[in-house]
Design a protein around this nucleic acid. Sequence first.
DNA 1: TCCAGCAACTGGATCGATCCAGAACGGGGA
DNA 2: TCCCCGTTCTGGATCGATCCAGTTGCTGGA
Lengths: 351, 351
Amino acid sequence: MKPTLRAVAEAVGVSRSTVSNAYGRPDQLSPQLRQRILETARQMGYPGPDPTARSLRRGFVGAIGVLFTSRLSYAFTDPFAVRFLTGVAEAAERHDSNLLLIPLPDDAAGARTAVENAAVDGFCVYCAGDEESILDTIRGRGLPFVTTSSRPRAGDLWVGIDERSAARSAAAHLTALGHRRVALLGDDVLPGAPVGPLRVADVADVPHPTTRDRLAGFAEAFAAVGVAWPDLTVLTATDNTRAAGAAAARALAHLPEPPTAVLACSDVLALGALDVLRADGERGRRVSVTGFDDIAEAAPAGLTTVRQPGEAKGRSAATLLLDPPADAAAGQILLPTTLVVRSSSGPAPRS
Amino acid sequence: MKPTLRAVAEAVGVSRSTVSNAYGRPDQLSPQLRQRILETARQMGYPGPDPTARSLRRGFVGAIGVLFTSRLSYAFTDPFAVRFLTGVAEAAERHDSNLLLIPLPDDAAGARTAVENAAVDGFCVYCAGDEESILDTIRGRGLPFVTTSSRPRAGDLWVGIDERSAARSAAAHLTALGHRRVALLGDDVLPGAPVGPLRVADVADVPHPTTRDRLAGFAEAFAAVGVAWPDLTVLTATDNTRAAGAAAARALAHLPEPPTAVLACSDVLALGALDVLRADGERGRRVSVTGFDDIAEAAPAGLTTVRQPGEAKGRSAATLLLDPPADAAAGQILLPTTLVVRSSSGPAPRS
DNA sequence: TCCAGCAACTGGATCGATCCAGAACGGGGA
DNA sequence: TCCCCGTTCTGGATCGATCCAGTTGCTGGA
């Protein structure tokens, strides 16, 4: 067993406080004594104050938790999530804070205990499906948190984009190009729905807030040119992956009247769709595709998409958490988005 | 202030142990009492046992630390590191463990305290520059750890590849294609060296173990066809990034006798070099390039490279840590590598 | 009737530090 | 010479739980 601070104190013949001070407050004791203590500690193999005990006493941990829905490993698979994390890491680093990655189990109870058991000073909530229940648990612990989803509650720390108008800009681009018969592609649009076209009575029924807002934004632009919600095809993917996007796009072929464009809620899905539709395009039919995020792969693929600043989002989130602004209004940061037009979108074919 | 377990106990009129048991060992008390306790706790706003206090008493934390050299944010920038992390995350998840990402400051003292202050059950050491000193600190804490670098000490947990022979396979591929005048490209080959060609008296002088072993492997294959170490051009990049690889490759143009092939220690560097050399190639000169890792971008770029299983590496590492094998021999896992030949390598031009 | 045996609960010790009020000491100014 | 003050160090209380050896009360078998 490793010696404790107490053992060192006894060996040197001083009080525990003094040994503690030797580590944490060098100015509280004479340099000679400090030297003697550290030397003895070294000889005894004392590894320094125990981090857990220190955290307990001090009341803070030195780490922030990043909450992910679904499998943690997935977070690394999604390029946008990685960019977000990069930003978070950057800011955390600047504040000498570590990053605790916390995957949230699918079941509410499991998610709850995961949040309750995490030893952190605050939470950064990245795209939690059932956000409200998670946030309530965090509030229950009395810890600060930042959200990045679309609907911040007043007073909460938040950093995000105007999902709706960002999505609208992509859709407006397509309506301007003459597209009227289109498909909206989202990840897990309705819980447990199988891949493919889907009947969604109302956008409000979509549980995931980000997906909902983006779909709503798409719909707004089409409503403006007279295409009502029920006339839009809603396509769901089982996952936010390229493969799932491709699978969803393949389902389009079976429609009686295939759409002239696909508006995806993420670049990953869009690229998957593009993989399929490009191949089709080479056989004649050409379908426009737009994405969302502007991940690195979007540019080489020529994907038209909505750019949002991923690193900045993460950086702002962590900074908000670690260095909260005195002014409550500064606790909510709206980041800009840009429509990036590339080759994947073009005029609608004349019918 | 949030109420503590003690407060709940007093409110209900039972001992602290009983409240504790209500959370952690439901079988130790009657269901009715348990209900009553949980209900009162809820009403009082008790968030459940404090994770830090619990860790202190129980003696374990429920998280493993992943150590990175250099900036943490960089880890996310390197695709291979991301794959490794994905694997670690996957295994950690399976063992209900969280992941604490720990960036190591560049200075030894800072790195030391970072390791000493991390509240974790064990460490996964990913490419630490000055490994030995880090490992000593970890040993000092008496915590288990896994390394992934090239030289495991007997008895240590380790998962990795045969760096040397993997590198040799790439180089042998090029010698077979007739290449004799080549450049070896590594990240930070000698500490602080400026980008570009470099005089390295002996491979053994390269401090970073992985880079050293890969360079040594390259050299072996060339030695076998009569090209000695001093005749190989060693190129250093300032960073393991695509841009740094490109910058290093540009330096080749200034050489009196430019090489016919570049062997890079990572795909990221190789892709950077390819960016530059492909452009050159279009103007006539064609230089073969090989990489290392086989990241996702390698295939579309047609990069010949050595594939190593990134996720598996991470997964094995975390599993070794969280579920250590009884058999010491099983504590060191050697993963296979494959040479993947693509279009970036071709026959040497006849001179 | 008595006691073994079990389920349900208790409370002091403990995990390993840090905090803080105060004691001991030594030196300088009046 | 005396007192005050700053420096250096002390030790008990505390952070918030869990562990564990034990007590209590009740049931059932002999």
